[in-house]
Design a protein around this nucleic acid. Structure first.
Length: 460
DNA sequence: TCTGGGGTCCTAGGACCC
DNA sequence: TCTGGGGTCCTAGGACCC
């Protein structure tokens, strides 16, 4: 048996803010989603006021005010930087680490038989606190699912909350069973609200019930994922540690607007902006996209208004990571979707058919597809790649992802460097608009304490 | 007035192939 | 009267995660 640990920061976004603003301690604090829409992180004090995860901000604004609370726009640059620091410290405790999300990391302890893992958990927690200022919880168990469950106990069960560490492997099976019998089935990683309701209808109410359920029945009535979860709860590992992230399948860039939008001109700016953001991410990861999907949507929270949420896919002639090409394709898609007479609330794009950019550099301004250039070692680009039929593309040899001409490549790299150094959007395509009246609200932003030279905290 | 964004996996069913 | 069997691929929809 190889133990797993799950380390996870408490109320991560709020905790990041508190590191640099001690006045936020001991009072209700929430961090808002994009557009200052919903509460996506809550301090313990905010939870105690009954503020729910995902609750719209306008519903809790007065409540927060009455209790001297604070609401902050999300500062993703700060959280990403704090995350990097957090993961580095966690990674010092085992050579096998999976960074699972912005604030969570699995560790595997192969060959740690002689170690006191509970003590290691305590030391880890202390070091993270000392080096980053973030509070974390540590759960340890025989599988990832059990480590997750232990982490939940570490964070909220009175028996463990004080130390913040729960090692199921240290507990007698009677005690383990006790905790499982006391916990609702949706406390388990992978069991959401829908399945919990369906499970409860079949008499499976608690974690212990799920442990004792018949696997074949679970698989028949639900699916193989749930059956695996049940096995994991019984200490049989079905999920392995993913130390390297699997290749990405899609990149999404979408946003709600700060105001309702009716004009296609504004939609064009927003779609171009999303395409540019996605393109930058694509280049950052060394990928090229074969298909770009465009979507726009009206506001579903106003059902009295006519609703419309179309989407369409635009195949790229050659897989590309070039902002200009992606914007052009996205705008073509938008023209096909747009209808007058609707109040649009969001727009977005999805990049699909992602593949690593080949080592060769092509030429953007050369109209010949990369595969067809004279002297090319690779097979010619099949004509079907130009059709709009995705299935035709799928069966044919993949066209070699092209980079672009060398000059073009340098231009894009320069663009990325400038925006990296001076902030996103410093240099942008005119199609993205100058004034951008549709931009999301972000009215309660904290400074980039660790990510912007001009916003470093000052001590003294 | 005001309601987030970005991901993954699985399954069922249809189209199509030989 | 009688109407196969085995397979792949794609899509839409539903579930989950943070």
């Amino acid at each position: 048996m190889t133990p797993y640990a799950l380390v996870d920061a408490n109320n991560f976004y709020v905790s990041c803010e508190r590191v640099f603003a001690p006045k936020l301690r001991h009072r209700p604090v929430v961090v808002l989603s994009n557009n200052d829409g919903c509460c996506v992180a809550r301090s313990e004090e905010a939870k105690a006021l009954g503020i729910r995860m995902g609750q719209p901000y306008f519903e809790v604004r007065d409540l927060l005010r009455r209790h001297d609370g604070r609401a902050l726009s999300s500062n993703y640059a700060l959280y990403a930087d704090m995350s990097r620091r957090l993961m580095t410290v966690i990674g010092q405790f085992s050579p096998e680490q999976e960074v699972y999300s912005i604030d969570e990391s699995f560790l595997r302890f192969t060959g740690f038989d002689q170690w006191d893992l509970t003590e290691q958990g305590r030391r880890l927690r202390e070091r993270v606190w000392q080096w980053t200022g973030l509070p974390v919880g540590v759960g340890i168990g025989a599988t990832k699912t059990l480590a997750k469950f232990a982490n939940r106990l570490a964070k909220r069960h009175p028996d463990f909350k004080e130390v913040g560490v729960c090692n199921l492997l240290d507990l007698s099976s009677a005690r383990q069973h006790g905790y499982c019998a006391d916990s609702p089935v949706d406390a388990v990683w992978g069991i959401g609200g829908r399945w919990a309701a369906k499970l409860k209808a079949q008499g499976i109410q608690t974690v212990a019930d799920l442990q004792g359920a018949d696997l074949a029945t679970l698989q028949r009535r639900f699916n193989v994922v749930l059956a695996r979860t049940a096995m994991e709860l019984n200490g049989i590992p079905c999920l392995s540690l993913e130390e390297a992230p699997p290749p990405r399948q899609q990149i999404i860039a979408s946003r709600s607007f700060g105001i309702p939008v009716t004009e296609i001109a504004m939609l064009r700016e927003a779609v171009a902006n999303h395409a540019a953001r996605a393109a930058a991410k694509l280049r950052h990861e060394g990928l090229a996209a074969g298909i770009i999907q465009v979507l726009i949507a009206t506001n579903p929270f106003i059902p009295e208004e006519p609703q419309y949420h179309p989407a369409c896919c635009v195949p790229l002639p050659i897989p590309t990571a070039d902002t200009a090409r992606l914007i052009r394709a996205a705008l073509a898609g938008l023209s096909a979707l747009y209808k007058e007479g609707y109040r649009y609330k969001r727009a977005g794009i999805v990049l699909l058919d992602l593949a690593p950019v080949g080592a060769r550099t092509g030429d953007l301004f050369d109209p010949t597809p990369a595969g067809m250039r004279a002297g090319d070692l690779f097979s010619p680009l099949p004509a079907v790649a130009r059709t709009h039929d995705r299935s035709a593309l799928a069966g044919s040899p993949a066209p070699t992802p092209t980079a672009t001409g060398e000059r073009r490549q340098r231009l894009l790299t320069l663009l990325d460097d400038i925006n990296q150094r001076w902030g996103r959007g410093t240099l942008r395509f005119l199609a993205e608009g100058l004034v951008q009246p549709w931009r999301m609200r972000r009215e309660r932003m904290t400074p980039g304490y660790t990510t912007n030279w001009r916003e470093l905290p000052v001590v003294g």
